[in-house]
């Protein structure tokens, strides 16, 4: 399950795709982009790792952090909603705007919510992908063993 070319591609491409995901996330709200798409793109980057290094190695690296990541995302979303209480109502958005060298920057609770969405999507999508990849790999191993046995019996 370790393809040498794929591993090379993984090494180069995964950080780039993660960067694209972050870009998409930051672009959201006013322009097409946002947490959900960013989460899916990031998950696809890690899926590349699964393909290149196998599900087991990926599970070792990321496995324990997936559900907590989704939990963190939900906490972030709930926090964003509760922070809105400061602005007068549940889920009321609060924006901070400031200027850096004439460039307007703004941060707000919708972004926090979006970040939460991104985390939940990454966590859940990867849990699902890892589960399926593991099952598929187990089936492949079994299939190979079965074919070997058939070969032996034929000899």
């Amino acid at each position: 399950m370790t393809e040498i070319y794929l591993r090379l591609v993984d090494k180069i491409l995964t950080p780039i795709i993660i960067l694209i995901a972050i870009f998409l996330f930051l672009r959201g709200h006013d322009l097409p982009g946002g947490g959900f798409i960013a989460g899916l793109v990031a998950a696809s980057a890690i899926e590349l790792t699964i393909l290149a290094r196998g599900a087991e190695a990926t599970r070792d690296r990321y496995g324990p952090w997936l559900i907590p990541l989704a939990g963190l995302g939900l906490v972030a979303a709930a926090t964003a909603a509760l922070l809105g209480l400061y602005g007068g109502g549940f889920f009321r958005s609060i924006w901070l705007e400031f200027y850096v060298f004439d460039d307007k920057l703004k941060f707000g609770t919708p972004q926090l919510f979006d970040l939460g969405v991104m985390f939940v999507v990454i966590g859940m999508a990867l849990t699902y992908l890892l589960r399926l990849s593991e099952a598929a790999e187990a089936t492949a191993v079994k299939q190979a063993a079965l074919e070997e046995r058939v070969e032996e019996s034929r000899l």
Binding site: M124, A125, Y128, R131, L132, A135, A138, T139
Partner: peptide, 16 residues
């Protein structure tokens, strides 16, 4: 998407 993922996981488990 979430529900379909869940069903696929169930079907896979059933298959195993």
């Amino acid at each position: 998407f979430g529900v379909t993922a869940f069903i696929v996981a169930l079907v896979f488990r059933r298959d195993a």
